[in-house]
């Protein structure tokens, strides 16, 4: 993909984000932050790329270890973020259902 296609996706996604986030009810702003936190850990994709590369030489080897460290950090966020969001959302109950 060339730069312009990528930029187009980015700009359109910003607009989608703008409208979707305004429609989030204020009561759920804390879960919103927790879940955005979890999904921003999609940076794990970059971490996996680095970790999966075979590196026997100095720089490449360092790179793959940095990748592994980033995989660990991103995983903490992914599992922690989604789990804590689920825990919060489970607490929201309506009057009718009790």
């Amino acid at each position: 993909m060339d730069f312009i296609s990528i930029l187009s996706i980015f700009v359109l996604a910003c607009f989608v984000g703008y409208y979707v986030v305004w429609s989030v009810t204020p009561a759920l702003h804390t879960p919103l932050m927790a879940v955005t936190n979890a999904i921003s850990s999609v940076i794990i994709v970059g971490a996996l790329v680095a970790a999966a590369a075979h590196g026997d030489l100095g720089r490449a080897l360092t790179s793959s270890w940095l990748g592994l460290a980033a995989v660990t950090l991103a995983s903490i966020n992914i599992f922690g973020g989604f789990a804590v969001t689920a825990r919060m959302l489970a607490m929201y109950k309506s009057k009718k259902k009790g």
């Binding site: 990528i6 980015f10 700009v11 989608v16 979707v20 986030v21 955005t36 999904i39 921003s40 999609v42």
Partner: peptide
């Protein structure tokens, strides 16, 4: 990553 980054 780009879509997520823009959303967040």
């Amino acid at each position: 990553m780009i879509i997520t980054g823009a959303l967040v």
